[in-house]
Simulated assay, not measured.
Amino acid sequence: MITGAPAAMDALQRWLEAEAALKDASDNTITAYRADVAGFLGFLAGHTGGGQGLAALARVSVQDMRAWMAQERRAGLGARSLARKLSAVKTFYRWLSEREGFDASAVLSARSPKFQRKLPRPLSIEGARDMLGTVELQAREPWVAARDVAVVTLLYGSGLRISEALSLTGADLPLGESLRIRGKGGRERIVPLLPVARAAVEEYLRQCPYGSAPGMALFRGVRGGALSPRPIQKAMQAARMQLGLPSDATPHALRHSFATHLLSAGGDLRAIQELLGHASLSTTQTYTAVDQARLMEVYAKAHPKA
């Protein structure tokens, strides 16, 4: 595999460190950035002959950008993935050009490929209710069943990502009417804890054979370690097969359902943005399209045909 020149790779490392320290980017984001930009630097090293250090990065042309994007598409990369890679490269170049004092317009002006944004696929209110009731039936041990119910109730009742639910520790006890969640990018938010969610967690704690020390994970695996997402994913997979729900009825779909059902009930978009922890309102606005799409689907089924 071709790699970029040492000076370029060193600049990449410094940029990643800055993203982690100053913007509190998550480990997953840093890993994705590293792969995306390193791949671009590797392409440049082969495309321009390599070994030219940062000077080669400053000389990148519009034609170079087109050649890179064409290569990625020939390799089978979809428009959505290429748009993500281009965004990472632009962010890196914006940072580098400010420090090295060169014009990065050839990179920054590269047009992102158009793609159809996927709308979130929430469950219906009935589907979400059925999922909460059926997940409980998938485990052999009562305390595991109680654990799974508690987790999925938090996902739907508070709009948590599964990683956020599983990051809770004994320090978050005793439970009150809200939870302080540290989400993507280190952003903190306060989410409501409905009585049904609080009761589900308390029932799990009552049955759990392991303690709830402040420094320990709140949700435990069968051997006592911190619970990973996979058991919850498997429990929901079994439940959706039993209910005849589609394959996109995943843990993250419960978070989508939380947002969509709030919006359908008249929830304020800004308030929903805060509850979900979205950095940009445009991300939350996706749910307005979901709500409109569902409305048109109901209309098409119910409207009398001429």
Results as ranks from 00 to 15, higher is better:
146 A>S: 14
146 A>M: 10
147 R>F: 11
148 D>I: 14
149 V>I: 13
150 A>Q: 12
151 V>M: 08
151 V>E: 03
152 V>A: 08
152 V>T: 14
154 L>G: 00
154 L>W: 01
155 L>C: 07
155 L>K: 05
155 L>P: 02
155 L>D: 03
156 Y>K: 08
156 Y>W: 07
156 Y>M: 03
157 G>K: 05
157 G>N: 10
157 G>P: 08
158 S>C: 10
159 G>L: 01
159 G>E: 00
160 L>M: 10
160 L>H: 06
161 R>C: 01
163 S>I: 00
163 S>H: 01
163 S>P: 04
163 S>D: 01
166 L>Y: 06
166 L>H: 09
166 L>Q: 08
167 S>H: 05
168 L>Y: 09
169 T>S: 15
170 G>C: 09
170 G>I: 10
170 G>L: 06
171 A>C: 07
172 D>W: 06
172 D>T: 14
172 D>Y: 11
172 D>P: 13
173 L>Q: 14
173 L>T: 15
173 L>S: 14
174 P>G: 12
174 P>N: 11
175 L>Q: 03
175 L>F: 02
176 G>K: 07
176 G>F: 04
176 G>Q: 10
176 G>L: 05
177 E>N: 04
177 E>I: 00
177 E>D: 15
177 E>Y: 01
177 E>G: 04
178 S>L: 01
178 S>E: 06
179 L>P: 02
179 L>N: 00
179 L>V: 00
180 R>E: 09
180 R>Q: 14
181 I>A: 09
182 R>V: 13
182 R>S: 10
182 R>K: 15
183 G>E: 01
184 K>N: 02
184 K>D: 00
185 G>F: 12
185 G>Q: 15
185 G>I: 12
186 G>V: 11
186 G>K: 13
186 G>A: 11
186 G>P: 10
186 G>E: 08
187 R>L: 09
188 E>I: 05
189 R>D: 07
189 R>K: 13
190 I>D: 00
